[in-house]
Design a protein around this nucleic acid. Structure first.
Lengths: 339, 339
DNA sequence: TTGTAGGCGTTATCAC
DNA sequence: GTGATAACGCCTACAA
């Protein structure tokens, strides 16, 4: 009971026979090389005749190049739901790879089983490189990529990232500091933070930036830690903060989704924004312009991040030397109405 | 100036040499077959010694099976932003394929260039089947899949879908009719609809269901057509409806995101929900529980849809006969506060 | 139980 | 210009 084979498709061999030439000649018209007009005509006729489609997997085996690049999304469950960045990064990477005629293939890792299978896939010759998104500290993918010696690019840089793998991201600490400083400048006195995903560099760096901005005024009691960058975490985090200090008058939320959740919690508690409490977010995602009031936030150039990650891969594929291992993209502060 | 090759990796040939046996024997310990204990030990030692990783692409060429299934997302630009279904469908499909040890690879099609490249990829032997999501009427992918004879499954069924390709979805017309009927039952008299994506089966079927529910009371003037299932379209659609008939007191929005936008437009216009206007959405997405008031809507089992699509592919791969070409999943109406 | 040999579909290197 | 021929890394009869 063997599994059924797909319908047999015409091969180079077949069209060679049909056109009365050798396989070599067929290969030459397919790729480009010296071939007589009449041979070319006969071959092209045969190609459309039998409906030939090249087996790119066989070519990949021979060429040792698949012209495909993996986009590995780690634990996307919570991300696809609340983080519009992933989608934009993905589309940005795809657009860039598309320009270079490379196929982007997205792989999702949600379990240990997925991780193993993806590792096999990455090492199996199906792809020439991999973009890795949202790795955590000590993520097994780091080891896998390192062992494989596969051209790679990380979006963000987990603290234990092997010092040889290129990455692209933003200056999370710097921009967190900047937006917090701006919040301070509006005259707030008791400023808290809803910090998320502290096991990711983005999460811990944003907290570090917040702390740096406040300097001696930093109060660890006014930091609510939540697991994810999502709305629900924002609601819970804000409730916690209000409980800890009812007099709180400023909040830095680690993401726009969190800020949106915080807004909801503040509404519940009867506080108005920005008059009672000023709040700033992070990402400049669609959330930011849909809340009431609209969010002051940090713009994250998600599409460009994806594009740069793709370029990082393409550079390696071309064997070019990378000027710098890491690239940080600018993140303008967008000031709206919530603070 | 040829492009650099990846580092040469050990092959079956190499470990055969290292272990002092033939390639056949190595292949047998890799896959399972009769092999003596000592040979096995020597080979396994050699494998860990040189760090052998199998070239699955070569295996795919030989076996005519890659154990990979494509997940093709058409025009995902607007979708990833506002449609949480795509993500859930994707994860549902991945979970199911993962159980069968198949690798899901997502491909994004945003341009004609993408379409061509993806078509080559699908026909090139890299995947054994394809799940296609969010195809429009007359979408070129339909032709491509048909010509390829690749095991496939559509999520939704474009009207011109070849009568041989399996699909999975929901009864858009039926559930639209049901939720509209329920809205009518709350005593609304002037009921409009914000209809979206009429070139997709989901869009046109929801409109058809709405129309059927209203019967003779259907008023084409109270249907606002918008392009996408997104928030911005909801805002615009609702403004249009209010302009056409200020006395409107009920609205069926083609998606939760649209309903959320409509809520915003109603707030602008000073109408309160549900007292002045009752509104129902569709999807039961995260939007539904984040709006104020929470949305009455139709639950869409996105994860299950993905799982079924995956099963449809796996069945074909096993050569099993499908009992039915199309499968429709149940969509309970969830009644909350917006109507 | 193990080795040998042929081929999956493609491209590259030679002679002719 | 073109046709053999040899790989790419793997699996699987078949023979030993």
């Amino acid at each position: 009971m063997s599994r059924p084979q797909p319908p047999k498709r015409a091969t180079v061999h077949d069209i060679a026979a049909a056109a009365g030439v050798s396989r070599g000649t067929v290969s030459r018209v397919l790729n480009g090389g010296y071939v007589s007009a009449e041979a070319r005509a006969a071959i092209e006729a045969a190609i459309t005749e039998v409906g030939y489609v090249p087996n790119t997997a066989a070519r990949a085996l021979k060429m040792r190049r698949s012209e495909a690049v993996a986009f590995v999304a780690l634990e996307p469950h919570s991300l696809f739901l609340d983080d519009p960045n992933i989608g934009s990064i993905m589309l940005g990477a795809n657009a860039e790879l598309s320009l270079a005629d490379h196929q982007m293939v997205s792989l999702v890792v949600e379990s240990g089983r997925d991780m193993e299978r993806v590792a096999r896939y990455l090492s199996g010759g199906f792809v020439d490189g991999a973009i890795v998104v949202s790795a955590r500290a000590h993520d097994p993918i780091i080891q896998v990529i390192g062992d494989l010696r596969l051209p790679a690019a990380f979006v963000g840089h987990p603290p234990d990232l092997d010092g040889t793998i290129p990455y692209v991201g933003i200056d999370n600490a710097g921009s967190a500091r900047e937006v917090t400083t701006r919040l301070v400048a509006t005259g707030r006195r008791r400023i808290g933070m809803i910090a998320a995903a502290l096991d990711r560099d983005s999460g811990s760096d944003r907290l570090a930036g917040f702390r740096a901005a406040l300097g001696p005024h930093f109060d660890a009691g006014l930091v609510a830690e939540v697991p994810h960058y999502d709305y629900g975490s924002g609601v819970k985090g804000m409730r916690l903060l209000l409980e800890r200090d009812p007099a709180i008058d400023g909040v830095f939320a680690a993401s726009d989704a969190i800020a949106a959740g915080a807004l909801e919690a503040l509404r519940e508690a009867g506080r108005s924004v920005p008059s009672d409490v000023g709040i700033v977010g992070f990402d400049d995602s669609t959330w930011a312009v849909r809340t009431q009031p609209q969010l002051s936030t940090v713009h994250q150039p998600a599409k460009e991040i994806g594009a740069v990650a793709a370029q990082l891969i393409l550079h390696q594929l071309r064997g070019e030397q990378l000027e710098t291992l890491g690239r940080l993209l600018p993140t303008p502060v967008i000031w709206r109405d919530s603070a």
